[in-house]
Amino acid sequence: MKALRDAFGDEILALGRENPNVYVVDCDIGKSCKTLEFARQLPQQHLNVGIAEQNAAGVSAGLATCGKIPFVSTYAAFGSMRMCEQIRQEICYPRLNVKIACSHGGLTPANDGASHQAIEDYGIMRTLPNMTILVPCDYYSCRSLIRAACQWDGPVYLRFTRDPVPFIYRESDQFEIGRARTVREGGDVAIIAAGAVMSLALQACDLLHSQGIEARLLDMHTVKPLDTAAVTAAIQEIGRVVTVEDHNIINGIGSAVCEVAAGLGRGVVKRMGVQDQFGESGPYFDLLEKNGVTAQSIADTARSLVTGEN
């Protein structure tokens, strides 16, 4: 188990050492976002602008026009909402090479309550032209995708989570922006997931397997540009899809998959995620359960699609 925010701390340090143009712009939560080591080792590539997120976005835009590759580091709630218009105006519209790297995505700032939980973040970012969105699910894929984001020329929103999550991949696995990864192969039902809930989806696959149902599990780590080929294949080859995410079911991965299905005019999609309600203080998995997201419920939903029982 290792947290995605730790993956960010480790990978950004490696990237910064390799490339003096890689910058980190902190907003006074470097400690939680795991950038302290970067700040200590590479002070010439580091800025802490204080609790001033809108300014962080604009400063990064300015840095980018001078050839830097700034990673703004903050919580997802602030990185997607407090600086939203600045991202739109000064980063996405002029297509500047700024990365918005956010920890504490979804319900993971569990005890902090609704103010700090970000259940809307990549849904908002998804509507911004020129934006690329990455939602990794484990430590190694996270590191690989951060590296890919650094090499990608243009705005990228990266969503990490707070708590340690199980390893799903090996260190040597490489990930490509826009190319979904098949975690499990199967032909009875497709489960499309991303982020910290991937381990629940995997457990659901095991539960289904024990009932003789084989699920294809896709890691949709790139929410935008969506791997429409992988989604199309799932719909045309299987036709039954469950989406699972730690995000509002509105405008998240479920919505993106539905858009593809609607375009094809076929397929059934069940969206699992936050039920369009704010979070509250409580343990992470209790909060997910309150929204109907558990391994058992994912398996039940998938099985009902296969058997035709509601």
Partner: peptide
């Protein structure tokens, strides 16, 4: 900060008597 508590991790005017406005950001 417990699940279902009237005392959230940050002030919540809808749950806590005496809190005049929700804050946290």
């Amino acid at each position: 900060r417990k699940f279902g508590s009237i005392l959230q991790g940050h002030p919540d005017m809808k749950r806590t008597p005496g809190v005049d406005i929700s804050t946290g950001s």
